[in-house]
Write a protein that binds this DNA or RNA. Structure first.
Lengths: 142, 142
DNA sequence: TCTTGACTTAGAGTTAACTCTAAAAATTAT
DNA sequence: ATAATTTTTAGAGTTAACTCTAAGTCAAGA
């Protein structure tokens, strides 16, 4: 029916320390306590943790995640702020993904470059491999 | 012919403080100094900064970037280590991109959810919008 | 009941990556 | 030549996000 902090740690991959830290920072205002003071996590608390991990994984700070949770606690008057926050995060995420795509191209270039050098030595690597040379020009110009 | 630290800061978007910090950490062992001790960046130093930004942008720590640079300085005996490092980084990057894709789906769900609620109120939102309900089930299960 | 392991708190410590300060020296503009 | 701007250094300070410690409480098994 409820999970101990250790069980949640195992499920989420976070440590118990981190979960307590998140609570202290106001990210888990829903988690109940047993009569003797032990935390009791519900399935819905796990859902919140999934969302927190999602936002954290897209680069949102704990402070901004807390802002969202505070808006949530405030009720329907903050629906628009919450929608706008997700829209902003979506834009940020799209920017991030296209940036990663560019990084991937550079890394692919490096892999091709080193693979070629290791296979055949560095002399004339671009002459011997026109595609490599083209890629270099595309990425670095000149 | 050469750039001052301020010019490089402008070009790269990094601060002069950060550039000095990178140098101190061993990330810029190529940057020359003028007779009177001022840093003089070359175009090739800018290329290094581009690569550093790429690796940093894919989540590599400055310590690991320095390791790569140290290998580079060591010469051809480290070609394989450098290739393997880029291959590892490529895997990490692929994992990252697929993770971001999943995060994007959750955020799209939230945007759809809040948009719907704001437009029509929360009652029966899933009944009125079967696609939203399906997405919820796909992402959260149950 | 005893023991073992999990949990509690407040608060201190750590790490990475900056970010800033101060005072002096170099460069550029007038 | 003078003034304003930029750069230099060593080293101190900051921030986010943990991460750990200590001393005590709680819970489950033999």
């Amino acid at each position: 029916m409820g999970y101990s902090i250790g069980q949640v740690a195992k499920k989420t991959g976070l440590t118990a320390h981190t979960l307590r830290y998140y609570e202290k920072e106001g990210l888990l205002p829903f988690v109940k306590k047993s009569g003797s003071g032990l935390r009791v996590f519900s399935d819905s608390d796990l859902d919140w943790l999934v969302l927190i991990e999602c936002l954290k994984g897209t680069g949102m700070s704990l402070k901004d995640i807390k802002q969202y949770i505070d808006w949530y606690m405030e009720g329907d008057s903050t629906l628009n702020q919450r929608l706008e926050m997700f829209k902003r995060q979506k834009l940020k995420l799209e920017e991030q993904m296209s940036q990663l795509q560019k990084h991937m191209e550079k890394i692919n270039y490096k892999i091709a470059y080193y693979t070629e050098i290791i296979a055949h030595g560095s002399e004339g690597v671009f002459e011997r491999n026109p595609e490599l040379a083209a890629e270099r020009k595309r990425v670095y110009g000149k």
